[in-house]
Amino acid sequence: MSPGFLTLKLLRGLLTLFLAVTFVFVILRLAGDPLRLMLPDDTPPDVIDHYRQLYGLDRPLPEQYLRYLQGLMQGDFGYSFRDRQPALDTVLSRIPATLLLGLTSFVVSTLIGLVAGIVAALRRGSLVDQAVISFSIFGHSMPSFFLGILMILLFAMTWRILPSAGMGSAAHLVMPAITLGVGGAGAIARFTRSSMLEVLNQPYMKTARAKGVPVATRVLRDAVPNAAIPVVTVLGLRMGGLISGTVVVETVFAWPGIGQLLVTAVGQRDLAVVQTIVILVALTMVVANFAVDVAYRWLDPRIAGAGKEAT
């Protein structure tokens, strides 16, 4: 990995973060006065002024922005309007719940998607292939809030074998993780199948087959690594969405993670918390993209070579 490549990626990442922070800062303040949503209708004007001063909302917008950036540089993400706790603490306290849900669904959907995609490609045109394609379309097109409520109706209300909402035991994780994972598994299966079909038709695969290389070796050693690049792209996007992708599912299942916090914070214009979440999400996307770029070069060294020639 060349230092130039790393520097370029780092600079791009920082620029993305800066733009995200700036965009959200401006949009949130243009969208209305947070004190109107925060305080009751009959709040006396001097009390409103007191709060405006307390939160620094009485200062000109550019000054607020510069102060915010200055705070960020010092690790100060501001204070939640809602409970007056440091915004970073509030957000960090939710990460374990979101990661537990996100990573569980990521692992499950990746395993299911990869296996289903590979099997479907190997059995092209068969019933298995048809079933995988159907599952893939179902998973991709089924809205997660609808699937979640369907699952609650079946597993919690009708059969009463799983808790309906909340977090507390492994049983609580089952429905949200499946709901979140179904869409991902469908997408990964579809990409894996297409990519595998392309690779399986390559001359080197035919040669390997003609030489009598066992199926398992042909698939795992020759086909899967060559088919991996498009799949890695999907996985990267899914990894980047680990934090931001759980909003709906967390709300449906009352899962106390970042997604639910974001919904509450946006609804109440809790500026510091929303901004901190956006920074976190942007950071996750930047890291995921970087990881995908690195994975590309590891999987296919020709990419690094092409980069050098181009420069």
Partner: peptide, 18 residues
């Protein structure tokens, strides 16, 4: 007091005995 933002999930939890 448990936060359950979705009305459908609240009703399901009531029926399920949660």
């Amino acid at each position: 007091f448990v936060k359950v933002p979705e009305e459908a999930a609240r009703i399901a939890g009531l029926v399920a005995g949660d």
